[in-house]
Amino acid sequence: MSDEWGVRLKAYEGRPAAVAGVGKDPVNAPMIRHWCEAMGDTSPAYEGPDAVAPPTMLQVWTMAGLGHTGQTGHTGETGRTGRTEAYDELLALLDEAGCTSVVATDCEQEYLRPLYPGDEVTFDAVIESVSERKTTKLGTGYFVTTRMDVRVGAELAGTHRFRILKYKPAHQKPKSRRPRPVVNRDNAGFWDGVAQHRLLIQRCTGCGTLRHPWLPGCNACGCPDWDTVEASGEGSVYSYVVMHHPPFPAFTPSDHAADAAGPYAVGLIELAEGVRIVSNVIGVPYDKVRIGMPVQLEFHSYDDELVLPVFRAREAVS
């Protein structure tokens, strides 16, 4: 890539990325409920006759949904996203420059007006900036930032800035070690427990509420003090997805389905204690995993340093 690409890309700054987009659904109680259940948010502000939508759902109301067939235009079903030819041209130009891979890097949101069930959302977006050429561990490419203005009628409800990196992948020697979890001061106790083959759940000493993942304070009463209880290891599959990805050198085939090169199941496991944890479901083929399936905690050592909790289907427990 040469500086010529940067000049051509910069020319797209200020051009529209979406025009007259229309939310596929109005703000509605079922989607709010599903969001709150998935996030574990029990705030009373999000239910009842005076409910508002969680502010962090701002982008949700602008999404086109799965299976949509059109991206551009301004009328009809294919035009509901309002996506412009200028944005498509920018992405095509980046592809031409060899930046064929993409990763979302971050987003920023500003909330100006509550959204209520029944509100019809419209939106416009602009290509706010295209960075100079950057070299990252992933590869060399450009950061593209779009700013979306979300409205109800003529009233601005919020703004959503979304940043992606379009890059040419670096040619790196594959690492043999499995990726490490991010350990910080808030979750170090959890990983210390895992290293000892103990699954520890935080418990608020103020109200007794159990919580996972680990947090610096209680999301029920706000108390910063806590202790832990050890999970029994029994649970069931609350929900799951099947992951499909190309073979990755750090993952080697074994009895553990999460290590296999092919598809594997990632479950949201509801523990007997009432909290939920994301982990792999092992011991049965991925297409045999079912919601409600009983599972049992196991700890698997991947190398001299890394131990992870996984859950084996009880029908596969000997």
Rank of each mutant, 00 (worst) to 15 (best):
T81A: 15
F143I: 03
A125V: 00
H68L: 03
W35H: 12
K137G: 15
L271N: 09
V278A: 09
D124T: 13
D149R: 15
K175H: 09
P44G: 08
K10H: 14
R203K: 15
Q59S: 06
V27I: 11
R198H: 10
D95G: 14
T75V: 04
G235E: 08
L156C: 05
V121E: 13
K288C: 13
K137P: 13
Y240F: 15
G222N: 09
V237N: 04
E298H: 09
C223V: 01
P249I: 00
S129H: 11
L90P: 06
T105A: 01
A38N: 11
Y116A: 05
K10L: 11
A17R: 06
G262E: 10
V275F: 02
G208P: 10
L112C: 02
D106N: 12
G208F: 11
S254M: 01
G141H: 03
V275A: 01
P179W: 01
Y111G: 14
L90W: 09
G222V: 13
D124H: 08
R185N: 09
E270F: 06
T140W: 02
Y302D: 08
R180F: 00
H212L: 07
Y264L: 06
L58E: 07
V182W: 01
A231Q: 02
I201E: 04
G73T: 04
A195H: 04
S131L: 08
I291P: 02
S239V: 07
A18V: 01
T205M: 11
D192W: 00
T56N: 10
F311G: 08
V317Y: 13
P117E: 07
Q109S: 12
S254H: 01
V182N: 00
V295T: 11
T205Y: 05
V183M: 02
G139F: 03
P263L: 05
R312A: 14
Y116I: 01
Y264A: 02
K173V: 13
I282A: 02
A250K: 10
S301R: 14
V152G: 04
A188N: 03
A261R: 10
R113H: 12
A17M: 04
M39A: 13
V194T: 01
G292N: 11
E37P: 00
E37Q: 14
D192I: 00
Y286A: 15
N187I: 04
K288T: 14
D124R: 12
D287P: 06
S176N: 12
N280S: 08
G222Y: 12
G65S: 03
F123I: 12
P309M: 00
L199S: 06
T135Y: 09
T84I: 03
E298F: 03
E120D: 09
R147W: 01
L200N: 15
P44V: 06
P181M: 03
M1A: 11
K24V: 08
P179G: 03
V242W: 10
G217S: 13
G208W: 08
S254P: 03
G262I: 10
